[in-house]
Every structure is written in C-alpha cells, then in structure tokens.
Amino acid sequence: MTEPKKLKVATCSLAGCFGCHMSLLDIDEKLFELVKVVEFDRSPITDIKHCGPCDIGIVEGGVCNAENVHVLKEFRKNCRVLVATGACAITGGIPAWRNNVDLWDCFQEVYHYGIGLENGQIPNDPELPLPFDKVHPIGEVVRVDHFLPGCPPPADAIWKFLTDLAAGREPKLEYEMLHYD
C-alpha cells in the first residue's frame, strides 16, 4: 500500500512577531499527527530559504519592507492556497501603529531618543531591507484565499483550519475559535 501524498506547506513571518508560529507549535502532540499528512517546505521550522510549489502557504505578519514583498510574492507564486494568518497579516496589526508616524521620526525615536540610548545610530547596512513608510496587510499586495484571525489564532483554530484544508473542506471556525485578539 502506498502512503497518501503529503500536503506541502510553507510558512513565513513578515512584519510579525513569530507569535502565530508559536501558536502553530502549540498544537503540541498533534504535531505528530500533522507531520503524517503534511510536509514542510520553506519555513522557520525547516530553515529552507526559498519555497517550491506548495499546497498551502501560511503567512504571518504584514508587509513593512521590500524584502517582505519579495517573500510574499514568492509565496503567492508557489502556493496553491494562501492563508493570511493572524491580525498583522490581515490588518497590519500592531506594526501598523507606526502608519501615522513619519518614518524618520520613528527611527529617531527608536535609535536616538529612546530611554537609555547613548550615541545611537540608525542602521544603514546595504543588506538591510528597505523599510516602507507604511505597513500594509498582505491582502493589499497579493490575492489571499483564506483569513485566519487572532493574535495569535488559537492553536486549536490553526489545527482546525489546516485539517479542514487538508480534507478539502471550506475551513470553518466555531465561535470561540474566532478571535481578533
């Protein structure tokens, strides 16, 4: 008997805090069930740097710099189904609080005037991605197939969502799994 083909899943965190990834790991022992049906491609979990063709792309975080756009477009190109996961990917979230602050003022505050800072410097290494003046939800940059809200989405919600998708069902969250906080 041949094993059923595993679903390929890629994950990334853009302008996020990796909290959604922590919540994914928080499905605990169900991870063993998950890896029976899922194979991870590009993800902080595998440390693979670029994703190949995938069934599901899980994107955490909004878009705050040029590198985020490249990663997001790579995900959209390669993933059959793209899931905006968590408040930041869906709305911009906490990082979008800076959308009303001038970017230069923001840098000054963080690197020059912050409490306890002395002789601060604004990083300008050419390897650093170019920051945007505003943070955007990923839906403003690419087409998104599904939205999984929460900050982070509860582990059970991520599990339900992934298993629904893996089974070819339209993902549906029970009332208590739908949260914006």
């Binding site: 869906i90 979008a96 939800p137 403003e140 998104v144 739908l178």
Partner: peptide, 21 residues
C-alpha cells in the same frame, strides 16, 4: 463592534485600511 463582527462571521476587514490620524 468586535462582538457584532464575530456574530456576523467577519474574518477580514476586506476594504483598504484608512489608518486615519
């Protein structure tokens, strides 16, 4: 506002954010 959105099954604000000051 949040509760009404939960009740109506809102998964995303969908429209482009204004981010007003």
């Amino acid at each position: 506002l949040q509760a009404a959105a939960y009740h109506l099954g809102m998964l995303t604000p969908h429209f482009t954010h204004f981010y007003p000051a």
